[in-house]
């Protein structure tokens, strides 16, 4: 009961915040709304026994990626007044909204019947030890590849954003 209540709470918060992200007027507000979404989803993850993922969600998404977003928005000083000159939404807003809603409906319709019960998980599921174990044995090559990707991203970001090289 507690778990269900918390899940619905988090789910509703995340959806409402996501709506803010999509429709918000002010980039900073959107960013904060997205952080709220991410936080709520971290809560959902905790309820799903995914403790490590939840922590990383906060650490990486909220703590690093979104800080970067907010930093850029502040750096470019994008206030709401910038957006008043041009409309917030593109010409495709009607069609895009309809198609996205259709997509959501179709996906949900596919999922509604998917009511299989979750497996019983042992203690320590989703904990640091289990994930590390798997990450450094079975997934070691993707793990190393990810570090290469991140390295490339760092170099790329520096090259792109630097004023002159």
């Amino acid at each position: 009961m507690f778990e269900q209540t918390m899940f619905y709470l988090f789910a509703i918060v995340s959806v409402i915040a996501a709506l803010f992200v999509v429709a918000g007027k002010n980039p900073i507000s959107c960013a904060i709304a997205l952080i709220v979404t991410l936080g709520a989803l971290a809560g959902v993850f905790v309820l799903q026994e995914a403790h490590f993922v939840a922590t990383i969600q906060v650490l990486v998404y909220a703590g690093a990626i979104m800080v970067l977003f907010v930093f850029v928005i502040m750096l470019l000083n994008l206030g709401p007044e910038d957006l008043e000159k041009t409309p917030r939404f593109s010409r495709l807003k009607g069609a895009g909204g309809i198609f996205a809603a259709a997509g959501a409906a179709l996906l949900a319709w596919n999922f509604v019947s998917y009511a299989a019960r979750a497996a019983r998980v042992g203690p320590g599921f989703g904990g640091l030890a289990q994930i590390s174990q798997k990450l450094f044995t079975e997934y070691i090559i993707p793990f190393e590849a990810i570090s290469a990707v991140l390295m490339a991203a760092v170099v790329g970001a520096v090259v792109i954003a630097k004023r002159e090289l």
């Binding site: 198609f99 259709a102 997509g103 179709l106 596919n110």
Partner: peptide, 12 residues
């Protein structure tokens, strides 16, 4: 998005 929705519709 249109393509994705089309595929989803087909699957559904």
């Amino acid at each position: 998005v249109v393509g994705m929705v089309a595929i989803l519709a087909y699957v559904a």
